[in-house]
């Protein structure tokens, strides 16, 4: 492993009780943090300290801790998933920070992401958007042989780029309009690029976009903040593709 040392960090953390209308920042200091440890392991250390001193630990979501499940998501020093690009919060390591540095930690804020507790928010709006067309309508059964349809590698690779979205919500948190366009467009793009997605293309684009609006997400006005924080580097080219699909749908209906 690379050069390891122990550092101290000061934290300003958003705390909010369940059902509490408004939260507040509280300050903590965590000592003896190995620079090899991850950011969330540093918060685990804080929670050990809080538990031992009879205080209530800080609640935050995390699960796989390898950047693929999309459960974690914190705004660190004003940036969703923190200062390093192309990673989720759980992949951020303490070697990125200096000894004695003060870090501000907040939840992903957006109107459709209602606060639950401390740094945990409700992202179920994403599930409802997917339920309106983020799939190919095929029942489990006996489809044709997998190699019966040839797909150009380029299209397949682009579809995979879009499909790699982990649904974390950083794009929404970073957007000044709290738009879910990057998230929604990634799924629409995946299927727009594949032959299996064609029969339902029209319905998919219009229904998913409608649901996105219904949930209260804002419109996209091309700031590009979403792309900058996306842990999977999903590009806003997908939003352009979503618009094309949406207009095609509007013209056909």
């Amino acid at each position: 492993m690379s050069e390891t040392k122990n550092i101290t960090v000061h934290l300003k953390v958003w705390r909010q009780k369940r059902n509490e209308k408004k939260g507040r920042f509280e300050s903590y200091t965590v000592k003896d943090v190995s620079t090899d440890s991850s950011f969330l392991e540093m918060l685990d250390l804080l929670n050990e300290d809080l538990t031992k001193s009879g205080k209530e630990p800080l609640e935050f979501d995390s699960d796989c801790r390898e950047g693929i499940c999309g459960t974690c998501g914190l705004v660190i020093n004003g940036v969703a998933h923190g200062p390093q690009q192309a990673i989720a919060t759980c992949q951020l390591h303490m070697r990125k920070f200096k000894d004695g540095e003060t870090l501000t930690i907040e939840p992903f804020r957006a109107k459709p992401f209602t606060p639950i507790k401390d740094l945990i928010v409700d992202r179920s709006a994403f599930d409802r958007i997917i339920s309106k067309g983020g799939y190919v309508s095929t029942n489990a059964g006996s489809p044709q042989d997998a190699n019966a349809i040839l797909i150009p590698k380029k299209n397949s690779d682009l579809a995979m780029d879009a499909a790699s979205c982990i649904g974390c919500g950083a794009c929404v948190a970073a957007c000044p309009n709290a738009s879910a366009s990057l998230f929604t467009s990634a799924k629409i793009s995946q299927y727009a690029l594949l032959p299996q997605g064609q029969p339902e293309a029209t319905r998919r684009a219009s229904q998913m976009v409608d649901q996105m609006d219904l949930e209260g997400f804002g419109n996209c006005s091309n700031h590009g903040e979403c792309e900058a924080v996306c842990p999977k580097q999903i590009t806003i080219a997908n939003i352009a593709r979503m618009r094309r699909e949406f207009f095609k749908a509007a013209l056909r209906s």
């Binding site: 190919v136 095929t138 006996s142 997998a146 690779d157 579809a159 499909a163 299996q196």
Partner: peptide, 22 residues
């Protein structure tokens, strides 16, 4: 084998060769 067929039908973007095969 059936699983691969099913997943391809769902639009799972498996890796492909230049000829378009899996």
């Amino acid at each position: 084998a059936n699983i691969i067929d099913q997943c391809v039908a769902q639009g799972v973007p498996f890796a492909r060769e230049y000829g378009g095969l899996l």
